[in-house]
Write a protein that binds this DNA or RNA. Structure first.
Length: 263
DNA sequence: GCGACAG
DNA sequence: ATCTTGTCGC
């Protein structure tokens, strides 16, 4: 698949100031509400799809690993993409590209965006929904990597982060029961009116015993998906593990492909 | 000036 | 992200 807005692609050579300006453009172009054709009830349930007479949507997970050179420094990114439909893997692709930018909190898409787009260009199926490891709207300028990629490709996307970049949970997120969702609202660190709903802390799994507990995921709209749909999609797609299946599979594939290259 | 900060 | 053993719980 190709970019529908190549002018908004993350350019690693931009100055920090220019990157932030581009992110505000991305946020302006982003749609943080449902605007897609597929039936969200059929995301991972083939039976629902059969009953509704529609084929399940193609959900694609994206993750990265990094390769080291002889000197022991990270010099390349490996982007892994796993496409699923009705709970089954239908295609896997990956791409290795040179690293062009360091990791800077808030500017992740300028480090990982190009590699991701390179991998997605080799994907033959058309994604109905893209899942990224990282934030979407939960971002200083409402333009996390899921939002940036979703806007550039104009495909519905969701951000799935393991820790909270910014924003404030409306209530305690300690030891939530499986299935629970707690709103994450904008605070003074986010460039939008305080209290704006940015996403949800989503508890996909939880231990039974009260001894130790699992932390929630932080789910936010990337593009063309509202916060409720994003949270429900992640709950729907997380069958047996904390991470939604497409992301978990992409995570494993990123490591597998890395090993096959000898680290 | 100080603190905070996805992967 | 990555470097890594043991350890707790089902």
């Amino acid at each position: 698949m190709r970019a529908s807005r190549p002018d908004l692609e993350p350019d690693p050579t931009l100055s920090r100031k220019e990157m932030e300006t581009l992110q505000r453009e991305i946020a302006d172009a982003a749609v943080f509400e449902d605007r897609f054709e597929f039936d969200p009830e059929t995301l991972s349930n083939p039976l629902e799809a059969a009953v509704s007479g529609r084929e399940p949507p193609t959900v694609v997970g994206v993750d990265q690993s990094f390769l080291t050179n002889e000197a022991g420094e990270q010099d390349r990114a490996l982007s892994a993409v796993v496409a699923t439909r009705g709970g089954e893997v239908i295609e896997r692709v990956h791409a290795v590209t040179p690293l062009e930018s360091p990791y800077i909190p808030g500017l992740l898409s300028f480090r990982e965006g190009r590699p991701i787009l390179a991998a997605l260009e080799t994907l033959s199926v058309e994604p109905d929904l893209l899942l990224f490891d990282g934030s979407g709207r939960i971002h200083f300028r409402q333009a996390g990597i899921a939002t940036h990629m979703g806007v550039v490709l104009d495909v519905p996307s969701v951000g799935v982060a393991k820790s909270l970049l910014c924003g404030t949970p409306r209530e305690s997120i300690e030891n939530l029961p499986a299935g629970a969702c707690v709103p994450i609202e904008a605070n003074s660190r986010v460039g939008v009116t305080d209290g704006t709903l940015l996403g949800y802390a989503v508890q996909t799994r939880q231990y039974d015993s009260p001894d130790r507990h699992i932390n929630p995921l932080y789910v936010s709209p990337g593009h063309r998906v509202g916060p409720e749909t994003a949270a429900n999609a992640v709950l729907e797609l997380a069958s047996s593990y904390k991470l939604p299946e497409p992301v978990r599979l992409a995570d494993a594939y990123a490591d597998e492909a890395k090993r096959d290259l000898g680290c």
